[in-house]
């Protein structure tokens, strides 16, 4: 048995060696044709400086509405981590409170994106149900914002994360209009589009996004979508899942457990 395995191993090794040899022989010719700048395109697997290979990942987030306590620590941490202006008009993530009353009235609010907390004034109306909903860029599989960007300054990376190239953004704000979730804003100082990046600079270093790191109740789960052992896949297996505005066919990669019909 063992012998067998080592034999096939050797075969595979030999084959891959031959492959490498062929690539080595052909590469200069191929590059001659394609021009040296196309190097990355031919070798599809490419790395960032710290060895992170985008191709090997596919990121997503799970949010359990039943666990969110509306403390707003995620919104605070996000602003700290990503230098988002402190004013209440710019958010990469925020938390909404839904209060649904027995008379059919629905109140939604998010004072300063939840950073100032939620005031607790009493009414005579009887509450039917109430809950908090954290909102964030959905990192859609079919992102409308990427579709409309005229210059290619926002894009979906190979790891599924939707990023902005702020040096290339012209500030036309078409992406802000196209986002159905209100997840984008124009940075008041750089005058370029801004949005959640899943804390890209953290996840390439194996750290959690800041909002997930500080969530005290594990209402947010971050992880890989195509690895069986990831906490996110477990989250998707254990819960009934909903996404926001499914009818728009954006295919969000932020998944909500216990999502209410009133959440839009």
């Amino acid at each position: 048995m063992e012998n067998n395995i080592s034999q096939t191993d050797k075969k595979v090794e030999r084959r891959s060696f031959l492959k490498k040899l062929a690539i080595l022989a052909l590469a200069p010719i191929a590059f001659g044709f394609l021009g040296s700048t196309d190097k990355l395109k031919t070798i599809k697997k490419w790395m960032l400086e710290n060895g992170y290979v985008p191709n090997n990942h596919k990121w997503g987030m799970g949010i359990d509405i039943n666990k969110c306590i509306g403390c707003g620590r995620c919104a605070v941490a996000c602003k700290n981590e990503n230098n988002v202006p402190q004013e209440p008009f710019f958010f990469r993530t925020w938390v909404e409170r839904y209060r649904i009353y027995e008379d059919g009235d629905i109140q939604v609010d998010s004072p300063n994106g939840s950073i100032d907390g939620f005031e607790n004034w009493r009414t005579n109306k009887k509450m039917l149900r109430s809950f908090f909903v954290p909102k964030i860029c959905n990192h859609c599989e079919n992102p409308p914002c990427v579709q409309v960007c005229p210059v290619g300054a926002t894009f979906k990376g190979e790891d599924g994360v939707v990023l902005v190239d702020s040096d290339y953004c012209v500030g036309c704000r078409y992406c802000i209009q196209a986002c159905p979730y209100g997840a984008r804003f124009l940075h008041p100082e750089t005058h370029t589009a801004e949005k959640c990046t899943f804390c890209y600079h953290r996840i390439v270093q194996d750290k959690l996004p800041a909002c997930v790191e500080v969530c005290p109740t594990q209402a947010r789960v971050f992880g890989e979508l195509n690895k069986k052992a990831s906490p996110l896949v477990r989250f998707l297996r254990m819960n009934k899942i909903g996404v926001l505005k499914p009818s728009l066919n954006t295919e969000p990669k932020v998944y909500y457990a216990n999502l209410d019909m009133e959440v839009k």
Binding site: V146, Q147, V148, C149, P150, V151, G152, A153, Y168, C169, V170, G171, C172, R173, Y174, L186, T190, H191, T192
Partner: peptide, 22 residues
Amino acid sequence: HLGHPEKAYEILITPNSASAMA
């Protein structure tokens, strides 16, 4: 109205074929 009018030429050199605006 652009945030960066000086970069407007990008729409001509790298137009995104999927974008209505490009």
